[in-house]
């Protein structure tokens, strides 16, 4: 059963850096992503928005595989700053999983 993490949800809520609220899940970002992974970035952000920290952790390699190239945000109709959201997730994992800051 999926577990919702209040810690991740709170971190996302308080952050100026993570903002995917405008995302309408059209999937253009995933379609244009050079990596071609199904998870990047729309599905990943959905997990973050609903606080599914376990799912986010399962996808740590995908989070660090993002090129931060910005092809997704360039084509995002909702103008979500996707690379900055990925950087936020890396920061969260670095601090909470890798003990790095």
């Amino acid at each position: 059963m999926p577990k919702v993490s209040s810690k991740l949800a709170a971190a996302v809520k308080c952050s100026d850096e993570f903002n995917a609220a405008a995302c309408m899940h059209c999937g253009i970002c995933t379609a244009v992503c050079p990596m071609g992974y199904e998870i990047l970035p729309r599905k990943l952000f959905r997990y973050v928005q609903v606080g599914l920290e376990d799912k986010v952790k399962e996808n740590i390699p995908n989070i660090y595989s993002c090129l931060l190239c910005g092809m997704c945000s360039e084509n995002c109709p909702a103008e979500v700053n996707i690379p900055e959201n990925v950087r936020f997730l890396r920061k969260y994992i670095n601090e909470n999983e890798f003990n790095l800051s």
């Binding site: 050079p34 990596m35 660090y64 595989s65 092809m71 360039e74």
Partner: peptide
Amino acid sequence: GKNTHCCGGPLESLFPSESHRI
């Protein structure tokens, strides 16, 4: 231009084979 495609370089330190694929 603004729709350029990445060279894969940013992945070289963590995921070299993926970097080479891109």
